[in-house]
């Protein structure tokens, strides 16, 4: 792995870990039903993002 790739990968992973820490802080003290509702909302957003990713863009006119 070349240094540029390693640095890029490192930044990606650090961002993921920092994101997880923030999300865990946000979850603290929530009830199971609130956590479930948040997961339902996140899953819906994920499904929409997946649909957008797999949609084949039309060729330019």
């Amino acid at each position: 792995m070349d240094p540029a790739m390693a640095i890029s990968l490192g930044f990606t992973v650090i961002n993921l870990v920092l994101g997880e820490i923030n999300k865990i802080k946000a979850q603290a003290g929530l009830t199971a039903d609130q956590l479930s509702a948040m997961a339902d909302t996140q899953d819906l957003a994920n499904i929409e993002a997946i649909k957008a990713l797999i949609a084949v863009e039309p060729p330019p006119a």
Binding site: E20, L30, T31, L35, M38, A39, Q42, D43, A45, N46
Partner: peptide, 18 residues
């Protein structure tokens, strides 16, 4: 609550992956 929190963690990691 632990199961629901862990399920939300999975949703969040999938979101990060997307």
């Amino acid at each position: 609550t632990a199961a629901m929190a862990a399920s939300l963690d999975v949703s969040n990691v999938v979101s990060d992956g997307l």
